[in-house]
Design a protein around this nucleic acid. Sequence first.
RNA 1: GGGCCCAUAGCUCAGCAUGGAUAGAGUGUUGGACUUCUAAUCCAAUGGUCAAGGGAUCGAAGCCCUUUGGGCCCGCCA
Length: 628
Amino acid sequence: MTFKSILDEIENNLHKLLDDLSISDVEFSVEVAKPGFGDVSSNISFLLAKKLHKSPKDIAEMLSEQYLKCTSTLVEKAQAHPSGYLNFFANWGKLNQLILSESYLAEFGDVDIGQNTPIVVEHTSVNPNKALHIGHIRNIIIGDVVSRILKKVNYQVNVLNYVDDSGLQVADILVGFQHLGFSLEPSTGKKFDHYCGDDVYVKTTETYETDSSLEEIRKNTLKELEDGNSETAKFADTITRRVLANQLETCWNLSVSYDCLNFESQIIRSGLWNKIFEKLKEMNLIEFEDKEKNAGCWVIRGENKEEDKVIVRSNGTATYIAKDIPYAAWKLGLLEDPFNYEKYDKEQPHSKTLWQTTLNESSHISKNFSGEKVITVIDSRQARLQKIITSLMAKFKSTPDAYIHLGYESVTLSSETAKTLGLNADGKQTQMSGRKGLYVNADSVYDILKEKVKEETCKRHPEMTFSEIEKIAHHVSVGTLRYEMIKQDLDKIITFDLTKSLSLEGDTAPYIQYTHARASRILEKSNRVPSIVVDFSLFTEESEINLIKTIGLFDLKVRDAANNLSPKVIARYCHDLAVAFNSFYEHVKVLELDNKELENSRLCLVNSFKITLEKALELLGIIAPDRM
RNA sequence: GGGCCCAUAGCUCAGCAUGGAUAGAGUGUUGGACUUCUAAUCCAAUGGUCAAGGGAUCGAAGCCCUUUGGGCCCGCCA
C-alpha cells in the first residue's frame, strides 16, 4: 500500500458520489497535488460544470460537503479551491504507516503489467569493428534501463545484442589488415577495439580516397564475407570476436548485461531469409517491379507518397533492410528457430549467463529468446527503415504494437570538444563519425571521470584505502555516465562536452549518491537497527511528510516509466527523492534526540528512504556507495 | 520535392500523452550557512511575450492549422 491507496480511495468515493447524482461516463482525474494544494487533487468539478450548469467552484464546494459522508480511512478532509479544484488532505498518521511498512518489503515498487509474458529488448548492436563511443552508450544505457524497468513490472525480459559481423564496416578493417599491412597486434598496447576503430578503420577509409584500386578489393572482401566457408570469413570471425569481447568488457563495466548474442553472419547462413522471402511473396507484401528505375527488383510499395523500397536487387541479392526482416520475425517467434545455443566463453558480472547463437550442429542446446513483444532500441535516424519493418511485423502478428522501434536522438559533440579532436566546428555542435575518427570513446570518458572522482574522494577522505577509493570512484563514474545518458527525454539531442558533461554537482548521479551516503552514515552512527514498531504520528515536520510522500510515489513512477518506455521518469524520481531527503536532512535532526521514540521513527524513515533510493537507482543500473 | 523530430529563464532541460490553480529544476550571476548526522550539501536573490500568428474551447505552454528557425532521414551502400 503506497500513495496509490489514497488515490484509489478517493477515486472510488468520487465514483460513488457520481452514482448518487446518476452521472456516469465522466473521466475525471485524481492526481498527486501540486505543492501548496493539499495532497491529492481532482479536476472533477470542471468536467461536471457543463452537465450541472453550475460553476466549478460551486460544484467543488458541493462535492467537498458530500465527501463527508463517504467512508474514508486515509483522507482527512476534502476542500474546494476557489479555482474549482477539489483538493484532499491526507490523514498522514495512517498513510505514514502504510507507506513506510510497504517500503521495507522486498517487492516494494513492483507492478504487474507484464504478467510474466516474454518480451525482447534489443540494444547495443554496434558493428564489431571499433570501440564503443559515447553515442553508442546512449543506446546501451537506454536499452539497459528499459529492460530493468520491464523486469520490475513483471515481464520476462530477453535482452539481445545483434552483432553485425558481416557488413561493410567489418570489410573495411579486413582490407586494412590484409592489404594495408596493419599488424594484428597494436604496438602501443592499446585495447584491440580501440586500435581497430581509431587506427585501422580510420586509416583504411582515408586511403580509399587516394587509392581507387582498393574499392574493388573492398567489394570482393564483402562478397567473401557472406560466404561462410571462405578464408576471409574465418579471418573476419577471429577479428570481430576479439572486438566484440572488448566491447562487452566496456558494457559490463557499466553494469550492462545481455541474455543472448545474435550474429548477422549466422542469420544470413541460416537460410531464414529464403523462408521469409517466400512468405512475403505469398502475403503479397512485396511486388516484382518490371519497369522503370527499379526494374528487376522486388520492392515494398511506399505508403502515400513515399518511394518504393528495394528489398531484393535485380541481381537477386537481399538489401540491408531485407536482412533485418527475418531477424525481426525471429525475435517475435514467428519462425522456426534454426539456431543452437552455447554459452559465451567469458562470464558476465553477477554470473548472469550469456548465451550466443550457433549454427554448429555439435551443440544441441535449444533456447527460446523470442518475445510476445519486441522493443528494439535504435537511434531515430533509422526511423524510416524501422517503420517499414514495424509495419511488416504488424501484418505478421495480429497483436497491436508487438514490434516497437524505440527511437532516440543522437549524441553530438560540442564545438569545444570537437576542437580537441582536431575539428574546427565553427561554434556549432557536430555529428560524430567513426569513419572520420570524430568521436569520444566510452572507455576514455569513463577513465577521465574516474580520475576526477578519485581526486575528489581523496581530498575528502585521506584516510581511505586505495581499494575503497577505487570502488567508490567506479560506482560514481558509472553512475554519472549512466545518469547523463537518461536524465533527459529520448527526443532531445545530447550535446556531449568533455568538461561540462562530467560535472559532479547539481542534477547528477553524484548528487543522488551523496544523499545515499548521508543516509547510510546516519544509520551507521546510530549503531542499531531501527524498530519498525513506531508511532507514525510523530512525523509532523513538513520535510518529513514530504519525504514519506515521495517514497510512496515509487510504484506510480515505475508504472509511468514502464507504460511510456521512459527511463527519464525514474531518473527524475531518484532526483526528487534526493531533494526530499536533503531538505529533511537540513531541517531535522535524527541522532541524539532527547525523545528516543522520535529518534527511532526518524531512523525508520531514513532507512526507508535508503531502501527506496537503492531500489530506484537499481532500475537505472546505478549503485550508491555508503560513503563518498 | 517528400517525411520525422525539436523550439519553455543567459545556458542545459522538466512540465505537454490525459487542457484547468501560482509555468518548475539544474547551471550561471550575487549574497548567506561547516566547532553540528559528510558543504559532491542547503538557504536567499536574480532570471519567462512558453518561437510567431491564427483556430476550436468557459479555459491553452499543452489540442488543430499556418509560418519561421534548427537538426535528421529519403541508394539496386551497410
